[in-house]
Design a protein around this nucleic acid. Structure first.
Lengths: 354, 354
DNA sequence: TCCTGGAATTGGAACGATCAAGGGGGCGTG
DNA sequence: CACGCCCCCTTGATCGTTCCAATTCCAGGA
């Protein structure tokens, strides 16, 4: 009848109350308490009140392990956490993860971080799937070939990708239709370029990444489209490099010598910092003489003296959409996922305006 | 005898194999399989081989929910994830969290992120404790009064803090002896100050935070001790501000006017960026005329033109120590936790050397 | 041959929740 | 008054694992 005394494994916290404890206190059966928690509309109003009072008095919370075991779902979302690269301006993860955690909470989920072998993009997932530790995954680095997505789809594990499936252009083959959320990089660089065009610049250069980066080529497309739509040339105005400050420096020097641009649109804040450095070294004033725009609105863009104008990704919105897609995925009718493409904004600072 | 067909809740992955499946295949009982996984030394060698082969063939992984339920432990570590403040140079979390995840994995744990109400430092913990969703917590923002630690200790919930319990000086009252790991901020600023002293500077200023920041006062102490130990004055050379770039700018202007220092040690990279800005605005060359050192080795320090010398916290080491302390805490004999204080390093860049 | 004892293995119960049926009232209806 | 129905609630089984105690196996000693 009463609850039995339990031995505790490590003698920490007192054993939390169980469904049976609440039931006894409220004078109902276990199932009724369960219903009060999960299907309150099934109970008569006064019974519900009584049970809720008992729950409150005892500080009852359903034991997750027991619930998980029975329902075969953990309400956990797995995410493989890769660190930001040192020496690069992109601290994207911080903002994204925070909102992901927040939005997940509202949807009744928690975020489980895990690590994998550095050289194997698929490692770590299998263990969690087979031990039914998570309900779904969020994958974040989908730039190349995207082996995680393929792996997960092959095993029918639900997941949402932050990033488009790039590898197959328009004609996405059947069975490769997972839900994804992404930011329209081309729209961002187009915004940046038009911002400079509106300020009167006509010779605007592109400083981007190597050609094999699909994201880089997408961003580049925004720049070239903006120029072409106003009938301006792009030839000789583009430069593709590694994503480092010194590459940005070199690219700016090269371009200033060869093409004398008055504006620079860059694929990253890292490159933009290099461009700014060269501009300053030549005695040109950022904003006044030469305008520079970066990408990511990193802390560097915010803190560098004068400020760096930069394209800001709506990471908070991305996270919210990701959780929304997950909810759709985990609710009963399996919705074949499409994609969501969000528009970035431009944060104008001193480097492009004075 | 054979396993029954199971209906799946959402018709995703095929149902993973269970202990019973493995047992049947290996021709042993369930308990023997369990022992093969958890206490292999109890089995005869040939039996162990047979069971292991069955486990491998079926791709068996223990169901976490069932295991959690029975053992009353989840092998999850909870961490409340607060985002980095925008406009501040500190992207500490990224580095720390990554290593925490990595080290946790080696210890057989995963990291569960959760969110709480912004205005309530304790919110979020209770739910996870009462639903036995995590075994322990890592708390990271222990600067003031540290209500989470008090809350968790009051409920005998195991946790490790990144950050010392500041509030009670030397005489830590009994019952407030939780394990913690921290970085010796004073040692860091002392390192920075001595770096400048060794370069020949004698008038070295401090740009720090308001007096009510214990961490700020600790860092300040490193600076003042370094100066005093060489018989140099500190009066008139310290300035305490908000943690913003413009504060750093103002502080530098003030100090240059009043005390004409040739070196600046700052409580953060954010402040240091402001100092650098003022230095440049006055036509002084960072490194050559005036040396500046920041704190945190943030991306800004790495990417700013010329580079900003900065104190780097050994966050990877902190995470490893944190996990080590957790392991000690969660293993059977409760060890009353002491603290671990780690030394930072100095990353020298152009702002202090030319 | 029987007994003993340690090592190896087994079957039953339990962890705490949900699922799937199975009642017991009260009320309207024939 | 009996019947059936719906509403509300209860009972027993179950998820997959580990704990506990019991049982079998096998070698060595009396």
């Amino acid at each position: 009848m009463g609850r039995t005394v339990r031995r505790l494994p490590t003698a920490y916290a007192a054993a939390p109350p169980t469904l049976a404890d609440v039931a006894e206190r409220a004078g109902v059966s276990r199932q009724t308490v369960s219903n009060a928690v999960n299907n309150p509309e099934l109970l008569r109003a006064d019974t519900l009140d009584r049970v809720r009072a008992a729950i409150r008095d005892l500080g009852y919370r359903p034991n997750r392990a027991a619930r998980n075991l029975r329902t075969r779902s953990t309400h956990l979302i797995g995410m493989r956490f890769a660190p930001a690269q040192e020496g690069t301006a992109n601290a994207t993860m911080d903002r994204f993860v925070h909102t992901l955690v927040e939005a997940s909470r509202e949807a009744g989920y928690h975020v489980l971080l895990f690590a994998g072998e550095a050289d194997d993009p698929v490692s770590g997932y299998g263990e969690l799937v087979r031990s039914t530790a998570v309900d779904a995954f969020v994958i974040t680095d989908t730039y190349l070939g995207n082996p995680q997505a393929t792996w997960l789809e092959g095993r029918s594990v639900p997941f949402v990708a932050f990033g488009r499936p790039w590898d197959d252009g328009d004609g996405v083959p059947a069975g490769r239709r997972h839900p994804w959320v992404d930011v329209d990089g081309a729209a961002g660089t187009r915004l940046a370029t038009e911002h400079l065009l509106d300020a009167g610049h006509t010779r605007i250069a592109w400083v981007g990444w190597r050609k094999d980066s699909v994201i880089g080529e997408d961003r580049r497309a925004g720049w070239s489209r903006a120029l072409r739509s106003r009938g301006l040339p792009t030839t000789g105005l583009a430069c593709r490099m590694e994503d480092t400050v010194s590459s940005g420096r070199e690219a700016a020097a090269l371009l200033l010598d060869e093409a004398a641009p008055t504006g620079f649109v860059c694929a990253s804040d890292t490159l933009a910092m290099g461009v700014l450095d060269t501009v300053a070294a030549r005695g040109l004033r950022p904003g006044a003489d030469v305008a520079v725009v970066g990408f990511d609105d990193s802390q560097v863009a915010q803190l560098t003296p004068g400020g760096l104008t930069s394209v800001r990704q709506p990471l908070e919105q991305v996270a919210v959409e990701v959780v929304g897609a997950l909810e759709g995925l985990l609710s009963v009718p399996r919705r074949v996922g499409g994609g969501v493409l969000l528009g970035p904004t431009l944060v104008v600072r001193g480097s492009s305006e004075r």
